[in-house]
C-alpha cells in the first residue's frame, strides 16, 4: 500500500481517533478526583455543549444532500413541532423525534420537494 492510499486512514486516525480518545482517557484519569461542582467544570460543560449545539444548528440551517432544496421554514417548523410534542409528552424523546420527523416528511410530500 502506498502512502497516498494510506493517507485518509492516517488522517482519520490522527484527526478523528486520537482527537476524540485523548479526552476519554483524560476523563478516566480524572475519574473520582475531578471536582464535579467546580466552576471550571461548569465552563468546560458549557463550551462542550455549545460546540455540539453549533453542529446541530448547521445541520438544520445549512443542510447538504436531499434536504438542501427544502425551505428553511419547514426545517425550523419541524423542530418547533418536535419540541412542542417533546414537552407535551413530559420530555418524551421518542414523541419529540416522531413529531419532528412526521412534520418534515409531511411538509416534503406536500411541497413535492
Amino acid at each position: 500500500m502506498t502512502v497516498d492510499a494510506l493517507w485518509p486512514y492516517i488522517f482519520i486516525a490522527v484527526a478523528g481517533w486520537l482527537a476524540t480518545d485523548i479526552w476519554r482517557w483524560l476523563g478516566v484519569l480524572a475519574g473520582n478526583r475531578i471536582d464535579e461542582n467546580s466552576e471550571t467544570m461548569n465552563w468546560v460543560r458549557a463550551v462542550a455543549t455549545a460546540l455540539v449545539a453549533a453542529v446541530i444548528a448547521k445541520l438544520i440551517v445549512y443542510p447538504t444532500g436531499e434536504l438542501e432544496t427544502s425551505p428553511l421554514w419547514l426545517r425550523v417548523g419541524a423542530i418547533a413541532i418536535g419540541a412542542a410534542a417533546f414537552f407535551a409528552f413530559r420530555r418524551n424523546q421518542l414523541a419529540g423525534i416522531a413529531a419532528a420527523m412526521g412534520a418534515l416528511a409531511f411538509g416534503l410530500l406536500v411541497l413535492g420537494v
Binding site: A50, I60, Q93, I97, M101
Partner: peptide, 30 residues
C-alpha cells in the same frame, strides 16, 4: 439526514444534569 440533529437535540436535553447545559444549548444554536 434530519434525524441526526433532531436526535442530538433531544439527547442533550434529556441527559442534561446541570442548568448551564440548557443555556449553552440555546446560545450555541444561535
Amino acid at each position: 439526514f434530519f434525524l441526526t440533529p433532531v436526535y442530538f437535540l433531544s439527547s442533550i436535553w434529556v441527559s442534561a444534569r446541570h442548568r448551564v447545559i440548557y443555556w449553552a444549548l440555546g446560545i450555541g444554536l444561535v
